[in-house]
Simulated assay, not measured.
Amino acid sequence: MHRFKELEIWKKSRFFCSKIYKVTLSFPNEEKFGLTNQLRKASVSVPSNIAEGSSRQSNKDFARFLEIAIGSAYEIETQILISSDLGFINSEDLIELTNMLEEIIKMTSRFRATLL
Protein backbone atom coordinates (compact mmCIF):
# COMPACT_ATOMS: atom_id res chain seq x y z
CA MET A 1 0.00 0.00 0.00
CA HIS A 2 1.21 3.49 -0.90
CA ARG A 3 0.69 6.73 0.96
CA PHE A 4 -1.01 8.81 -1.69
CA LYS A 5 -0.42 12.12 0.10
CA GLU A 6 3.32 11.59 -0.32
CA LEU A 7 3.07 10.89 -4.06
CA GLU A 8 4.21 13.78 -6.25
CA ILE A 9 1.70 12.79 -8.94
CA TRP A 10 -1.14 13.16 -6.43
CA LYS A 11 0.14 16.54 -5.24
CA LYS A 12 0.52 17.88 -8.78
CA SER A 13 -2.85 16.56 -9.93
CA ARG A 14 -4.54 18.06 -6.88
CA PHE A 15 -3.00 21.45 -7.65
CA PHE A 16 -4.01 21.05 -11.30
CA CYS A 17 -7.60 20.36 -10.21
CA SER A 18 -7.64 23.63 -8.26
CA LYS A 19 -6.35 25.44 -11.34
CA ILE A 20 -9.15 23.96 -13.46
CA TYR A 21 -11.73 25.17 -10.95
CA LYS A 22 -10.28 28.69 -11.08
CA VAL A 23 -10.11 28.81 -14.88
CA THR A 24 -13.66 27.53 -15.32
CA LEU A 25 -15.03 30.27 -13.04
CA SER A 26 -14.88 32.58 -16.06
CA PHE A 27 -16.73 30.20 -18.40
CA PRO A 28 -20.17 31.37 -19.59
CA ASN A 29 -23.09 30.49 -17.31
CA GLU A 30 -24.66 28.37 -20.04
CA GLU A 31 -21.62 26.07 -19.78
CA LYS A 32 -22.26 25.37 -16.09
CA PHE A 33 -23.68 21.94 -16.92
CA GLY A 34 -21.52 21.47 -20.01
CA LEU A 35 -17.78 21.97 -20.27
CA THR A 36 -17.44 23.51 -16.80
CA ASN A 37 -18.96 20.46 -15.15
CA GLN A 38 -17.12 18.00 -17.41
CA LEU A 39 -13.73 19.62 -16.81
CA ARG A 40 -14.23 19.78 -13.08
CA LYS A 41 -15.40 16.18 -12.76
CA ALA A 42 -12.54 14.87 -14.89
CA SER A 43 -9.96 16.95 -13.01
CA VAL A 44 -11.24 15.64 -9.66
CA SER A 45 -11.04 12.11 -11.08
CA VAL A 46 -7.26 12.23 -11.55
CA PRO A 47 -6.12 12.69 -7.92
CA SER A 48 -9.11 10.68 -6.70
CA ASN A 49 -8.12 7.62 -8.73
CA ILE A 50 -4.52 7.95 -7.60
CA ALA A 51 -5.70 8.04 -3.98
CA GLU A 52 -8.14 5.16 -4.38
CA GLY A 53 -5.62 3.03 -6.24
CA SER A 54 -3.00 3.57 -3.55
CA SER A 55 -5.23 1.73 -1.09
CA ARG A 56 -5.29 -1.45 -3.17
CA GLN A 57 -3.44 -4.48 -1.97
CA SER A 58 -1.66 -5.27 -5.23
CA ASN A 59 0.49 -3.18 -7.53
CA LYS A 60 -1.54 -4.52 -10.47
CA ASP A 61 -4.72 -3.04 -8.99
CA PHE A 62 -2.97 0.26 -8.28
CA ALA A 63 -1.67 0.35 -11.86
CA ARG A 64 -5.25 -0.05 -13.13
CA PHE A 65 -6.37 3.03 -11.17
CA LEU A 66 -3.39 4.98 -12.52
CA GLU A 67 -4.50 3.95 -16.01
CA ILE A 68 -7.95 5.39 -15.27
CA ALA A 69 -6.32 8.61 -14.00
CA ILE A 70 -4.35 8.89 -17.25
CA GLY A 71 -7.56 8.38 -19.23
CA SER A 72 -9.18 11.22 -17.31
CA ALA A 73 -6.15 13.40 -18.07
CA TYR A 74 -6.57 12.81 -21.80
CA GLU A 75 -10.27 13.60 -21.45
CA ILE A 76 -9.30 16.89 -19.79
CA GLU A 77 -6.85 17.69 -22.57
CA THR A 78 -9.59 17.31 -25.16
CA GLN A 79 -11.98 19.47 -23.15
CA ILE A 80 -9.34 22.16 -22.64
CA LEU A 81 -8.70 22.31 -26.38
CA ILE A 82 -12.42 22.55 -27.13
CA SER A 83 -12.75 25.27 -24.49
CA SER A 84 -9.91 27.15 -26.16
CA ASP A 85 -11.51 26.72 -29.60
CA LEU A 86 -14.69 28.28 -28.19
CA GLY A 87 -12.75 31.19 -26.65
CA PHE A 88 -13.40 30.18 -23.03
CA ILE A 89 -9.68 29.72 -22.22
CA ASN A 90 -7.05 32.29 -23.15
CA SER A 91 -3.78 31.22 -24.75
CA GLU A 92 -1.76 31.78 -21.56
CA ASP A 93 -4.00 29.49 -19.51
CA LEU A 94 -4.11 26.96 -22.34
CA ILE A 95 -0.32 26.70 -22.40
CA GLU A 96 -0.07 26.49 -18.62
CA LEU A 97 -2.79 23.85 -18.32
CA THR A 98 -1.50 21.69 -21.16
CA ASN A 99 2.06 21.82 -19.80
CA MET A 100 0.88 20.87 -16.32
CA LEU A 101 -1.25 18.08 -17.71
CA GLU A 102 1.56 16.74 -19.89
CA GLU A 103 3.83 16.55 -16.85
CA ILE A 104 1.16 14.74 -14.80
CA ILE A 105 0.57 12.22 -17.61
CA LYS A 106 4.29 11.52 -18.04
CA MET A 107 4.92 11.16 -14.30
CA THR A 108 1.89 8.91 -13.83
CA SER A 109 2.85 6.74 -16.80
CA ARG A 110 6.39 6.33 -15.50
CA PHE A 111 5.17 5.50 -12.01
CA ARG A 112 2.65 3.03 -13.40
CA ALA A 113 5.42 1.27 -15.31
CA THR A 114 7.32 0.68 -12.06
CA LEU A 115 4.32 -1.17 -10.64
CA LEU A 116 3.99 -3.70 -13.46
Rank of each mutant, 00 (worst) to 15 (best):
K12A: 08
T98I: 10
A42K: 12
S55C: 10
L81K: 08
G53W: 00
S18L: 15
L7Q: 08
S91M: 14
E77V: 03
K12G: 04
K12L: 11
A42E: 10
S26Y: 06
L97I: 06
S72F: 03
K5C: 02
R56Y: 02
L25G: 05
L94P: 03
I9V: 09
I80C: 09
I68Y: 14
N49E: 04
S18H: 09
S43F: 01
K106A: 09
G71D: 10
K19T: 11
I50F: 06
I20E: 03
E6Q: 14
D85I: 06
Y21N: 13
I70D: 03
I89L: 06
K22Y: 13
Q79C: 06
T24Y: 07
L81S: 04
N90M: 03
S18P: 05
E103Y: 09
C17M: 15
A73F: 00
G87M: 11
A63Y: 01
Q38W: 04
E31Q: 11
E67D: 13
R112P: 07
S26G: 08
E75M: 14
R40I: 05
R14Q: 13
I76A: 02
S45I: 07
E30H: 13
S26T: 09
S48M: 10
I9M: 12
I50N: 01
S13W: 07
P28T: 00
S72Q: 11
L94M: 15
L39K: 04
K32Y: 00
L35A: 07
T108Q: 05
D85A: 13
L94E: 15
L115R: 10
T114N: 14
F4N: 04
I82H: 11
T108L: 08
V46L: 13
L39G: 03
M100N: 14
F62R: 07
E8D: 06
R110D: 08
S13M: 02
L86N: 12
T114H: 08
T36A: 04
L97T: 00
L66R: 05
I9H: 01
I9E: 00
D93G: 01
K5G: 10
F33V: 06
L86A: 13
K41H: 12
L25V: 06
F4Y: 15
L25F: 09
R112H: 09
Q38Y: 12
F4Q: 11
L81Y: 07
